[in-house]
Each structure stands twice: as structure tokens, then as C-alpha cells.
Design a protein around this nucleic acid. Structure first.
Lengths: 156, 156
DNA sequence: CAAATTAGTGGGTGAACACCCATCATGGGT
DNA sequence: ACCCATGATGGGTGTTCACCCACTAATTTG
């Protein structure tokens, strides 16, 4: 009795295929949970960035997260409407808007972090603690390499 | 001098985040290469399934790859137009169409496999042979678990 | 002070994608 | 023979997503 749903072995033999598939389901499971709160993954990313790095000018946030500034404005609209962030004009440069995490925002972030951890537990269920560390270390290496593609020589 | 593009550490600490990001770039890099040939990832998957499992009824192909039958028809239209597959009506059941890989299809598959391997080499560049094996083994475990979610007890 | 630049915003576009439905031909069951 | 189920197909829908342009307000530069 062979599983008729089994994907072709020549694909499952590809690490990048497994990477892509598992990454996609992890992503979509978390997105599904967020959707119940009328939130998307970007909301989480923005809150996390604010918590990690402190207040940001809106444009800096957009650059950091590699989002179009126009899209960032919409994301912040939604977060601000729920009082998760404060947007105040920078008095020194009144074009700029400084975005700050509110207490409610910090609370929401904690909940979203918990959801993310729960999904991670689901996805990584078959791995024990050691294996999870290994996986994380390997992926961190790969990710670091992907985000720093151009390694310019240190200087003439 | 801090990289303003660096994602929040609280995200990069999540294995699922790394999984999702690296998977996404692997996917999109390969999709980009395929696009130069006017192909999409599904074309590769279909060819691989035919090579791995031999001729299929069209519907079985759709079920196996979890694609809507209607979309499968379109994919096969394109492959058949380029003579990569043969579609012949099953004489025993003339509703069915048996899909077979042609020689040209096999040749194309070899090229696409090579592209996939090349992308994989790019993505996994920072890992040595041992690490790649580890990563593949870990992901295979996770993937197997994700594709067999409901483990029903063997009998009442 | 005029001109060019930058920050934020609103609106719109187009590709990719997964889905769903209606239709037609065929086959099986009664 | 008739009715229902099935395989293939064409067409269409809605969503998500990244991206881009135009506009306003504010600042910097020459």
C-alpha cells in the first residue's frame, strides 16, 4: 500500500525542496493563527523590530525589514489603530515619524511570540533538543550567508 | 557600524523563521531560473513524478502532487506543447489520459535537475558535506512528520 | 529665496496562486 | 436503456503580495 500522495523521491532528495516545503508550511501555519487575530506576519515582525531595537523612524523600519515604505505605512496604520504602537512627529525633523511600542503592543508581541513558539513546537515535533539546536545552527549559517551575499574586500 | 538591514534577533532566533526565509529564497531563486525557460516549479515536479513513478493517469498525477485537476490540465498543456510529455487516451477507459515522459521531457528534466542542484549549491554554500547531510536528515524528519499528520490508531 | 531632496501617505497595478464551477465525454450499475 | 459517477478541460474568481506612482509637507542645498 503505497501512499498516492507521496511526492517524487527525486524532489524529496533535494534539501532545498525540503527547505522550501517545510518553510512554507511553518509560515502558513503561523499566518493562519495570526489571521484569527486579523494580523499578518508583518505585524509580528514590526513589533519584534521595535522591541529589539527600540523606537524607529518609520522609514528606518521599512528599510530594516525590507518593506516598501508605503506598505509600512499601512501596517503601522493597523497597529496604531489598535494602540499597539505610538506614532509621534519628530520635533527636530517634522517630516519624520517616530514609532514606539506601547505597553499593549508589548503585550501583543508576547502573545504572538508564544504563537510562534507553539507553531515551532508543532513543526519541529519529531526532533529532540539536540537536533533542534543542530538544525537552528545550520539554518543560521545558511541564512547569514544569504543575507550577506556581497563580501567586499575590507579595503585598499 | 550596524547593518541597518539586519532583521530583529528575536525573529532570527526562531528556527521556523530561518526555515521560512531560507526556504523562500531557495524557492524563488529556482523559480527565477525556470522562468527564463518559461517554466514554473510545477513543470519540474510533474516531470520528476513521471520519471520516478512512470506513466500516470492525469488525475493520479494531480492527486499525487496535490494540484487541482484543472490546473494539472493546464500544466500538461504546456509540457505537451513542447513535446515534453505524451498524452494518450487510455483505450481501456477512454475518459482517462495516460501521461508519459518523452525523450525530450527526460532531457529537460535533467537540465532542470541540474539547475536545482546549482541553486542548492548556492544556498548551502557555507555548509560542508557533513553539515549538508545533517541538514538534509533533519529536514527529512520534519518533512515526513508534516506530511503524515494524522496517525490514526490501527484499529478499534 | 528657489530648487532639489526626503518622509510619509493613498491609491492603484499586475503577477502568482489556489480554488471552484459548468461542461462534455465516457463508463458503470441497475 | 437510463441514471449517476468520474476524468478532463475551459473559464472564471478571490486573495495575497510586492511594487510603483503621484501627492503633500517639511527640510536642505546652492
Amino acid at each position: 500500500m503505497v501512499d498516492p500522495q507521496a511526492p517524487p523521491p527525486s524532489l524529496t532528495a533535494l534539501t532545498t525542496y525540503l527547505l522550501s516545503r517545510t518553510g512554507k508550511t511553518a509560515r502558513s501555519r503561523l499566518a493562519g493563527r495570526f489571521a484569527e487575530r486579523r494580523l499578518r506576519l508583518w505585524h509580528h515582525a514590526v513589533l519584534a523590530a521595535l522591541a529589539d531595537f527600540g523606537p524607529h523612524a518609520q522609514r528606518e523600519l521599512a528599510v530594516r525589514l525590507a518593506v516598501d515604505p508605503s506598505d509600512m505605512a499601512k501596517i503601522l496604520d493597523e497597529l496604531a489603530a489598535a494602540d499597539r504602537v505610538d506614532r509621534v512627529r519628530d520635533p527636530a525633523d517634522r517630516r519624520r515619524v517616530t514609532v514606539t511600542l506601547t505597553e499593549a503592543g508589548r503585550a501583543l508581541l508576547a502573545e504572538l511570540d508564544a504563537e510562534a513558539a507553539a507553531v515551532q513546537d508543532e513543526v519541529l515535533a519529531p526532533l529532540d533538543g539536540d537536533e533542534r539546536e543542530q538544525l537552528n545552527a545550520l539554518l543560521a549559517k545558511v541564512f547569514a550567508h544569504l543575507t550577506e551575499p556581497s563580501e567586499a574586500p575590507t579595503a585598499p
